[in-house]
Structure formats: C-alpha cells, structure tokens
Design a binder for these strands. Sequence first.
RNA 1: CGGGACGUGGCGCAGCUCGGUAGCGCACCUGCUUUGGGAGCAGGGGGUCGGGAGUUCAAAUCUCCCCGUCCCGACCA
Length: 563
Amino acid sequence: MRWSSLFTPTLRDAPGDAEATSHKLLVRGGFIRPLHAGHYTYLPLGHRVRAKVIKIIQEEMNAIGGQEIMVPTMHPASIWQASGRWDSMGDVMFRVQDRHGSDNALGVTAEEIFATVGAELSSYKQLPQMWYQINTKFRDEARPKNGLLRVREFTMKDAYSFDIDEAGLDTSFDAQHQAYLKIFGRLDLEAIPVEASSGNMGGTDSVEFMVRADTGEDEVLICPNGDYAANIEKAISTLSTIEDEAGLAAPEKFATPNIRTIEALAKAGYAADRQIKTMVFVADGETVLALVRGDHQLNEQKLADATAANVVRPASSDEALAALGARPGSLGAVGVTDLRIMADPSLRGRRAMATGANEDDWHYRGVDVNRDIAVDEWVDLREVQAGEACVNCGAALGMVNTIESGHIFKLGRGYAEKFGAQVLDKNGKQVPVVMGSYGIGVDRAIATVVETHSDENGIIWPAAIAPYEVVITIVQMKDDDSVAAATELYNQLLSAGVDVLLDDRDARPGVKFADAELIGIPHRIGVGPRALAEGNVEYTPRATGDTELVAIGDIASRIQQAL
RNA sequence: CGGGACGUGGCGCAGCUCGGUAGCGCACCUGCUUUGGGAGCAGGGGGUCGGGAGUUCAAAUCUCCCCGUCCCGACCA
C-alpha cells in the first residue's frame, strides 16, 4: 500500500473525551472513529488489525478441532424465555420489536442458539463437537467507556463444546484453555488464568484470562509463588484462627448509645474481629441477611452467586428497619428466624462475639454464633485483601488491576436439557450432552494490546497483528534516486509476501517519522540520500527506536528474518 | 440509576460572568520559499454555536425543557 492513497486520518491531539491510552492512540492513529457511545467504526488500519487478530483466533480454534459456523445476531424472545435469561439478562440485553409486535433480542452471547443447533446431534458417536463463531455481540452496558475496552457493539469469538460426559467436558475445556494461552501468546499478551465467578451463565467452573494493566477494572489476587490466582469475586485466603474465651451462657444486651459503626464499637472495647457485621440485602425481592466478621468486607458478587439471584442490592435504611426493627448500625441476626441468613465461614464456631441487638443504641455481647444464630447457609462472602495468606503456600497475596480478555465456562447439562441437545449413549439411553462455552472479545483484545504496547510516541504493535509489518519511509521525495530505490525495495518485499507500506507522501520527514511511530509499524526502513550514497538504508525497529545502517541489498532478508 | 462536568468547522480550544450577529491553533486548498524529527510567509474554503421553546430591538451568551458525550460511583454474560 502506498501511504499517499491510504485513508488513515492521524490527529496530533487526542479527542478531549478520551482517557485510556488505547482509546487515545487508536483514535489518533486513525484506526477507529466513534459513531456514538460504545459503537466504533473501524477505518482501514483498524480493520487490518482486527482481521489479523481474527485469523489468529481461527487458526487456534481450528487447531483444537473447532468448526466455524455463524448463527444469527437477532434472536426471537422465545428462545431466551426458554432459558430464563430473557429476564435475567435485564437491561444488558437490547430488545427490538418487529412490525408484528414480536419481541426479539440482539445477541449478548449464544448458549441458547448453539444448544438449539445441538438438538440435531443424535448419537454419542458424533461427540465431541466444538463449534464457534466470530460475530457481533450487543450489550447495553450501563456505562461504555475507554474506547474499545468497553463497548455496546463488538466482535466476539464464542465457542461451544458438546461432550457425552464430564470427563469429555474437562478435555474440551482444557483444550480451550491451552488454545487461549496460545492466542494471547501470539498477541503478545501475558494472560493470567484465574478462577472466576460464573455470573448468570450457570454451570460450575469458570476461568478468566486476565492481562495486567492499570486501566483494568477487574481486581485479581495473585500468589507471588505462582500457585494461586483468582478474581476478587471468587478469591479465598487462609485466615489465622482466633481462640475465643468461653463466653456467656446467653447473649447479653447492653446499651451502646450513639455507637453505629464497627469502629466505634471496637473503641468501646469489642475488637472488630470479635464482632459480627450484619448486612441486609434484597435478592430478587427476597430480604436476606449477610454476615461477615467485623473486620471483613463483603463481596457483593459472592453474595449474588450464593443466592443465585439475578439482582442483589443493599437494602435501604427503611427496609432494614422494616425487616429487623432497627436501622443499620444496630443490626444483628440473633433470634432471627424468618429471614434467610447467609454467613461467612470465618464466623463458624465463634463465641463471645458482639453484634447489634436490632434495637437502636443496643448491642449483644457473648454471642455464640452456632448457638444463637440460625444460619441457613455457610457461604464464602468475604472479600480477600492484599497481603492475606495464599491457601496453597501461605505467601502474601498481591492484588493487581487487570483487563478480562477471555472467559471460559463449564456449563454442564442445563442448556442441553432446555433445548433438547440430547444423544443416545452406548446403552441406547437418551441423555443431554454436557456443554462448555468459551469467549474472547476481539475488540477488547486489540485495545488490551495497545494498553500494554505503547510509548510516548504511539503504539508498538506486535508484528503478528500490526496493520503493516514494514513501513518504507522515503525521506526526500524530491530525490529521484531515493524514490527509485524505495520503490524497488517495496516491490521486492511485496512479492515476498510482506505487508509493507510505502510512505510516498510529499511531506516533511518529521511528519512521516512521527506518523509511522504513532501507528506503530514494527519495522521502519528509511530511504534517503545520506545513507543511499553509501549504498545503505536506515533500519529502525519501532520497539527500540535505534537506527542501524544496513546495506540496501541485505535489508529485505534482514526484515524477513525479523518477522 | 446517584453525583459532577461538558456540547462552538475534521481535531484541540477561547468567547458566555457583563446579550450587539463567531475567533485562535492544528488539519485542509492555492502560491512562493523551504526540506533528515510534526516548516515559514501570503492568500483561501469550511461552523444550523447539540435541539426546541421563551425573554429581548437583538441570544453562542439569559431562562426553561429535551437530546447527546465524558468522568466518579452503582452495575457489568
């Protein structure tokens, strides 16, 4: 491609509303343009990068036996109603009506659709199957932000596996896991696989692939010894045990005027780790109590997962009053029997604890949790803090910000049962297949690469996904020898199959160098009278910025070696 | 959804307090001079000032409503 014909409007200034590095650079470099919030146009350079990322994903999916198909992006409401996700998706799902008034959904994911296709499977002999598509997804995010990192319309690779049993699913899941590591490796992204919450996907295990980045919104707890990594929504740690004194024969109510916080009660002589923090939540309309130790934080996603509710929210002060007879600050679960009580295991067996008495300005002391509180479910609710001990080796866990770049799920038989994806097993018995689902956001992957591959001058693309692998900069367009030599080199690289861009614009050298760096072409060849007089060209890798003189006869093979 | 800010040519911004008919930088076009890290001079094109209503002789500027965008939080398959 000749740059003089290339449409890549570069900007000296980033748009004022861009914050994230990838957002600024992708817009400045002329890769993308916003249409409206969360929807972007891909210009030629961006489209080339996207195509290369897709190709890598296809190659790795095909390598593990994936078969590419494509399902519609608009789905009838009925299929989502059948799985229950027409409701549980809530506002995230775009819904449109057709001329007959029928409801339709724009796809946020496609478990339902693939399971429907899977209904045509009929025998265990056909399994395993692995199908995938690379297609547009729509998600009405509460707040699209940071350019391509969080959008409402995006390209996703979603794959689905079909196996006869759990062992088969494990094999498929592991194949995807390994393929993801290869894909991210080829994108030059260091993806950390972590244990994750499955959200409303259902199923059992899920693994997220997280890339460290300051702009990342997901927090991950990671062991320095490399034997544990988990999303904060799922992470656990080892706590030191607390030896309690015997305590009282029964809880004793005592006056605590104006004491409304854990901290205040601690100052009054009841240490935070000897208190029970009682929080009231509303899970799909049902009032539930969540109990954690006074010095612990509750993680709402853990609570949401434990309740299996679609929407979990903190109760208002008035709702707490209605449920327990007191306002936050004096709440407790002693004697409560009419509400669902969920407690963190760190409270199990604790004695001589202090907690609210459900009467403003009064607390209980001497509470024996097992004896005095009717806990319905013991579930992990506590949010792990940095510095706590790794469950595998005891080392202090670190906390890092990450971008979720991929997520794989073991779905189980739920979708297959609902959509009739059943086969006859060896015994001639009809059984639902076991499914897995596996997603990578293409656009987010692109943005993540930019987040982790840039400097003050612009993007530094890995060669595998760079819009062009090489740019030949003609330093002086008026120098006929330069133009001739550069053009010959250009044709030579083209016929060798190299993605090469010839900067033949009638612009000053500074402009050309700055643009080449901004759009991040990994290899730059400068052709100008100075070096050419000695039979040389200038070779500058984008990553280092160091320029080296190379004989013009050697540069082509040198480049091909580097690629 | 709660809090905050913003909306003026393709991009970045000023003008608004105190109403008088729109300006600067970049980019773009023409010419000349330049030419090894975002050139200089001269000339030029391009704007319903987010939209609507209102106040006024007069609205980018004041008032009201609406729309949109961004940031923080909530939320996030």
